[in-house]
Amino acid sequence: MKLFEYARAADAREALERFRPGTMYLGGGTNLVDLMRLGVARPDFLVDVTRLPYDTIDADGDGLRIGAAVRNSDLAAHPAVRERYPMLARAVLSGASGQVRNMATTAGNLLQRTRCPYFQDVSRPCNKRRPASGCPAIPGDHENLAILGHSEQCVATHPSDMAVALAALGAQVHVTGPASDRVVPIPGLHRLPGAEPERDTVLTPGELITAITLPPPPPGRSHYRKVRERASFAFALVSVAAVLDVDEASDTVRDCRIALGGVAHVPWRAERAEAALRGAPATEEEFVRAAEAELAEARPLPRNAYKVPLARNLIVRTLQELIP
């Protein structure tokens, strides 16, 4: 680890003022310190943003405002989240461990980096870590990497569970920056790798996440389901966040939201599947058709083709379980 300077910011202004080239914001550190120890991240300055006044959840009104510094465990335990956004609570609870969730912050969770094994090993090339050095995952091990939206430069996946639920819920990320404040939607915060896999998100240097807001909970029932190699404390192979609103009189889908984790460089909003389902009968066949519509554009690599049937089955089964 390179020697760095550490400072604790009291408010957003101080954090922004302290930001200069080589600075990184420090949340719970559960990803950043991990990456610093691996040599993947080598900041000169750390500005600790956990004491910023963004550690509360505001449930007034129809939606929800989650401070950027709210710890993952507090988010999942908050009564408003449990009652009104259970899918979000489930997604957060399915990630990491009790200890990590106690440390991890909302903003940090969104901005955590890929778990691609090559990315985490500085003795190897990786376009995301060292632009233009190559992507050894494509000819090598990519069993747990992307099937959708990847590029020839990078096939990494975004590892966050929480972000998948937020993508399905249509969350807004509030950002303050050196120039101005702005709001970035999810999906929209994370970007596909394209020719610049080193950029995970659309944020620019120095921009600070202050909060996430959620619109009122969508009508219908929702669920988050995650498939992994062990029963707990493992990243997703594939996960799905789904909301299904069925008109019980006609048994047709009034509306639905589907997002996938573990399949792309971003939390993947399954818009084609959603479009195929709106107004369609709420039946297994339609669910299959919708899932296949979404996955038609999947381009699996030799070793992750299993993710296509896995994602399909997961979408279909989760929707089935949401039929009232």
Partner: peptide
């Protein structure tokens, strides 16, 4: 242990990627 077929290196060389049974299993 996942081996890089081109250089023989061990890729999943930690406890997040090499899974041993956890309590929930």
């Amino acid at each position: 242990t996942i081996v890089d077929e081109r250089d023989g290196g061990f890729l999943n060389h930690d406890l997040a990627q090499y899974h041993v049974a956890a309590c929930a299993d």
